[in-house]
Amino acid sequence: MTSSAISRSRFGLLGLAFLCSGAAGLIYQVAWQRLLFANFGVDLISVCIIVSTFMLGLGLGALAGGWLGDRFPAATLKFFVLCEMVIGLFGLVSPFLIRALGSWLSDASFAVSGLANFLLMLIPTFFMGATLPVLIAHLVRVWHNVGSATGHLYALNTLGAMLGCSLTAFWLFHFIELDQTIYLAAAINFSVAGVVGFSFRAEGK
């Protein structure tokens, strides 16, 4: 096996990991939205700002991920593991951070409060956004077809996101609390990082 090739089983594992990563991402999004709504309000402006913040963070992260993938092609999986770790760590402290920020800025103007929440949410969404281009760069080197690699990874990640969204709204919120839901997503991130990191190291990469 060459250094750029990955075995079929490892490839399947990577796909599963990316699916789980997508599930964690949507669990966070649904749960963080609830936390932000409590601080920020549930009017349309808040909703649009929150959705757009998530998107912009993903976009900026994607640019960084693509650049890192090119600059350090041999380290793409390490970047992926690192991203998952950072997202998980942020997840663990996010309930505290979001509430603390809300309490601290309770008298601030809407613009200041919006900007502060935007900057806070930029941290995890940036790392979430970086994962897709990093993995695409990794996979294209094996498949040599960008459309195919993108379609495959994006489908898995979005399928995970769909599962995460359904799981949260139809099950998790019925049985566990908001913070516990976020901790579960963090556990998924750490598991993904652990499994990918371990299998990556086990094959001598």
Partner: peptide, 13 residues
């Protein structure tokens, strides 16, 4: 490759 993928992705985002 990575940059070209990410720029297309960024446009989408």
């Amino acid at each position: 490759l990575g940059r070209s993928v990410s720029r297309t992705y960024f446009s989408n985002i």
